[in-house]
Write a protein that binds this DNA or RNA. Structure first.
Lengths: 207, 207
DNA sequence: TGGTGTGAACGGCTTCACAGCT
DNA sequence: AGCTGTGAAGCCGTTCACACCA
């Protein structure tokens, strides 16, 4: 199934809906209206309806959305209906925090391997994973790991990205504060933490 | 000085330009054209010119932008021309990583205080800062710290946000994976890490 | 000539109003 | 009656073309 003309912004919001729908289903809620969901998430009801309508609409008029249905549909759209494996590169402060991060589980995402260039870290365990040498990045293909998370210093990031792509990785989450050049077929999302904090003072009225 | 009708997207890009301009000035580069800058950052030259033109335009036609000028103008626009202090709440894995994060320095941002609810952490040093009890959040006002960083579990996030705002904080960077309700005068930016990773499989063509 | 600055065209996302089901 | 689904309107941001200036 392929969907055309879906705004990227819609894709970004789907995981939010998904996570909430999962929580609701855990709470034995069977059905939710766009209005209820919207108030829980801080968005507008029509935004939710529009977003979901891109994929055919799977609510019931007059009633709302079946929660189980919502979960399974969004999982399928986001291709999260099978466990997705990612490799983490860089087990420094940030990398270790990502490994320990509990939030991935709700999306059936698994960090299945961790790499570092520092020989002192290689072989040690971190959160149940044995840290491997970056030289072994090439083994990702046969291990069917097709996503990468970059948590290395910025001057190493481009090389790591190149290696990940050589190893068959098709999507990268990049925490290094720099632009990374990749072939068009590869998707990169950069989370540049300092950037966001740097924006904040702009919005603070000066005294 | 106040500027109207500036897209939020432009504000998000300014720190990128700023960081690069600083790097260039450190490398003794005196002048840079929008084209050069664009190729370094993976954006288009028009985008850069348009973004800067919202603030009056401070380039030289036929030449480019004076690097020092670029730095001081963007610093002023983003109100980063004085050192800005932020308080971190939550010194777990992610919080500790943020404390150790080197990237803030380039924006004259300082994490000036760290708090946790766990008595075992309170009093201990983390990256040169003594961890304080969250009960002391109220002291932020007199210490002139007006930004907060939330790195606590999601069920504690809203309460912490409320406390931060009560303590006079006007802008919040939130790492908890949930929507936080705040008065309109307060700016919140949420970085929901798992969200980004959850988007990636959508862009990976299934085999 | 070369590169900035900017009004205007374009495109994409959000908002809206209401048609259509239950 | 109530809530979803959706074409249309409106808005915001990006792209473009070109005027302007060194």
């Amino acid at each position: 199934m392929r969907y055309y003309r879906v705004p990227d912004e819609t894709i970004k919001r789907l995981p939010i809906y998904l996570r909430r729908a999962i929580r609701l289903s855990e709470g034995q809620v069977k059905c939710v209206s766009s209005k209820e969901l919207a108030s829980l998430l801080g968005v507008t009801p029509w935004q939710i309806r529009k977003d979901l309508s891109y994929f055919g609409g799977f609510g019931t008029r007059g009633v709302g959305y079946n929660v189980e249905n919502l979960v399974s549909h969004i999982r399928e759209i986001l291709r999260l209906d099978v466990v997705r494996k990612a490799a983490l590169v860089g087990v420094g402060n940030l990398g270790s925090a990502i490994l320990a991060f509990p939030g991935f589980r709700s999306y059936w995402l698994e960090i299945a391997a961790a790499f570092d260039i520092d020989k002192r870290k290689v072989g040690k365990k971190r959160n149940g994973l044995v840290v491997e040498d970056v030289a072994l990045l090439g083994t990702l293909k046969e291990r069917r790991i097709d996503m990468g998370i970059i948590a290395v210093p910025d001057d190493a990031a481009q090389n790591i990205a190149d290696d990940l792509i050589k190893a068959g990785v098709k999507a990268i989450l990049n925490f290094a504060p720099r632009y990374i050049e990749v072939p068009k077929r590869v998707k990169v999302i950069t989370i540049d933490i300092a950037l966001y904090l740097a924006c904040l003072p702009y919005y603070v009225p000066s005294k």
